[in-house]
Design a protein around this nucleic acid. Sequence first.
DNA 1: CTCCCGTCCGACCGGTCGGTCGGTCCGTGG
DNA 2: CCACGGACCGACCGACCGGTCGGACGGGAG
Lengths: 214, 214
Amino acid sequence: MTGEPDVEEVEASPSTREKILDTAESLYARFGFAGVGMRAVAESVGVSKSALFHHFPSKRELWAAVHERCFLEFDARLEAADARAHNAYERLRLFVESAIDALVENPARAPLLLRSLFEVDNDEPADQAARAVLQRVLARVAAGLEHGMASGELRRAPVQHTVQTLIGMTVFHFATGDFGEELFGAPLYSAAEIRRRKDHVIDFIERALRVTTD
Amino acid sequence: MTGEPDVEEVEASPSTREKILDTAESLYARFGFAGVGMRAVAESVGVSKSALFHHFPSKRELWAAVHERCFLEFDARLEAADARAHNAYERLRLFVESAIDALVENPARAPLLLRSLFEVDNDEPADQAARAVLQRVLARVAAGLEHGMASGELRRAPVQHTVQTLIGMTVFHFATGDFGEELFGAPLYSAAEIRRRKDHVIDFIERALRVTTD
DNA sequence: CTCCCGTCCGACCGGTCGGTCGGTCCGTGG
DNA sequence: CCACGGACCGACCGACCGGTCGGACGGGAG
C-alpha cells in the first residue's frame, strides 16, 4: 500500500499510453463514461483492446487516469497564477485568465471537468486520487477568495457560492460545445470569442466582488 | 359530459406513463442517456420492459419525452415571470427566482438540463421538439436582457455571454448534487441554502448588470 | 355471448459490453 | 546462445443491450 513496486512513471513507452489517454480524454469528454466502450477507445487509438487493458487494469481506472492528468494540469496553472499575483483581486483575475487558458488549450477539458463535478461517480475507489487533486484546485480558489475578503480587497460574499459561480462562468461556458456555438453563431474556441469571454467574466467579477479604494 | 369532445389528451392511463417519465427523469439525470438501460427503467418503475416499449417506441423517444416535459415546465415558469415583471431588472430577478424554483422543485431538472446543454446528442431527430422548447426558454431570457439594455435599465454587456453566465450561476450550481453537498458541507436543496443561492445570484447580477438611477 | 382494443407480460433475437486468456514478437542481459 | 519480461494481439466468455413477438388479461360495445 505504501509505495508501489515500480516507482512513478517509468516513461518506457510514452507513445502508446499517452495516446490512449489523449484519445480517451476526448471521447469521455464527448460521450461520458457509460457512452464510451473500451473497443471504441482501442479502435480510435489504433491498438487492440487487449493492449488497452495491458496499460490500464479496468475501464474505471482509465477514466480516473484521464481525469487525474487533466486536474493536475489545471492545478499547475492555478498554482503558477497564485504565485504570480501581487494582491487578492489580481489573484482572482489571474485565476480566471489561467483557468480559461487551461480550458481552451484542450477543448476536452471543460466537458471533462464538468462531468466530474455533477456526475455521480464518486465513492468509486479508483477516482479517489483524481478527486483529491480536484479538491486541491478548489481549495486554492476558495483560499484566494477568503484571503481577499479578510483583507478587505474583496467584497464579503459566501465563499462556496462564489466558487460555484466562478466555475459556472468559466467551465460551464466552454463545456457547451455544440450548443454554445449554436447559441453564439460562432466557434466558441476562436481567439476573439475567448477574449470576449475573459473580458466578460472579469468585468462581472470586478463589479460584483472588487472593493474600489480609490 | 356524456359525449365529451376528445380534443384534449385522452389521459386514459395517467398512472403508468407518468410513472415511467418520472422514473426515467431521475435516472437519466443521474447517469445520462448511455448510463441507463431500458431494463433499469422498467425495473425501477415496476413494470416489464415490454410495457415500457408499449408507451414509448424507442429509448431515444423516452429520453426526448423526459426532456420536453422538463423544458415545458421551465418555459411555463419563465413565461409567468415575464408577465409578472414591471421593469427589466425586476424581470431579470424574477427569471432567476423562478428558474431556481423550477430547478429546486425537482432535483432531477438541473442535471437533466445541464446534460442537454453540453452533451452532443443533437442532430437526433427525436430530440427536435425538446430542443425547440429549450430554444424558446433561452430566447426569452435573451430578449429580457436585450430589452433591458436597450432601455438603459441594464448595463450593456454581450447578451449571449450573459445568458451563459446566468445558466452557469443557476443550473450548474444545482446540478452539482453530491459534489456540491461535499463542497458546502450541507444539503444543496435545503430551504436555507436555496435562499442563500438566490440571494447570492441576485446580488451578483444586480452589481454587475443593474444601472442605478438614484 | 362474442369481439375488440388498450395494457401488459415472458421469452427471445442479434449485437455489444467489460474483461480474460493463451500466445507472439522483440529488445536486453547473461 | 537462451531466458526473460514488457508490449501487444485474436479469440473468447458471460452478462447485458435495445428491440420484437405472440399471447394473456380485462373491460366496454355490438
